[in-house]
Design a binder for these strands. Sequence first.
DNA 1: TCGCTTGATGATACTGAGTCTCAACACGCG
DNA 2: CGCGTGTTGAGACTCAGTATCATCAAGCGA
Lengths: 144, 144
Amino acid sequence: MSNVMPLLAAFERAGHRITSPRLAVANLIAARDGHFAAADLVADARRDRLAIGRATIFRALELLIELGAVERLDLPTGEHAYVSCEPAHHHHVVCSSCGRTSEIDDAGLRAFVDEVARRTGYALESHRLELFGRCPACRSNGAA
Amino acid sequence: MSNVMPLLAAFERAGHRITSPRLAVANLIAARDGHFAAADLVADARRDRLAIGRATIFRALELLIELGAVERLDLPTGEHAYVSCEPAHHHHVVCSSCGRTSEIDDAGLRAFVDEVARRTGYALESHRLELFGRCPACRSNGAA
DNA sequence: TCGCTTGATGATACTGAGTCTCAACACGCG
DNA sequence: CGCGTGTTGAGACTCAGTATCATCAAGCGA
């Protein structure tokens, strides 16, 4: 459960209208804990009897990704998932029990990337890093 | 262009038969430079007039992934791709021009992961890291 | 207020990756 | 030979994501 505001702000900042379908999608995303699939949003919309087309949900999602307010991640299983997040470069730590994510900033990664560049001779442009494990809450719960 | 042997060895080690379709798939993979999509293999097989079913290619690929002789990676675009590689924990540096990959071992990542675990309190189980950039060859070529 | 332009929407068809099903086949073994 | 298990290929299917297109709503100038 996060806040809708950053999502709406992202729309506005980029000069897109905040229409009622977009607001609805933003609400659905904000109401979600942890990562979710596009299909989840579609299901949520249907559950709530929202008259939002599938295409619209995908479009809103795509827009938010482009604006950096939502990020796409790849679970260890190879599935794609989405998370709403701050629009700054960072990485995610994903709880393999509850699916919640935490964001982490550099934490020394920069040095690691430089080291790899030095060793391989590549001019590194971007990277993708995702960490998976059990979050503190799930650990203390001992829950699945 | 890599070697077929490790792929065949992976099949044998796990007690799977090296049948002619599997051999063919291994050859197609070995003949590939850099990463490839499953569809590429299907196309290659067709081009070479090989009588191999689509399903068989996917099955062989799945098996090789399970055995660690092939890894699935996620390109920055969100597409899935495969690369053949050593069956040990490591990460890939992918050339964004030519698609070739290099493998890197720890290179200090371990310390980084520990640091993240310390900061977030997560019990980290696995991670996924991919780096993208231009390889030395492409850099000196100035080629696209 | 009318009417135009532009962005947004929703239904639907489509694509493409990957999976599932199932009947047929091939090997190893008694 | 005849059985059992592992493998195969064709094709149907699923599911995420995209493309098409006619409709609709908001903003704006005349």
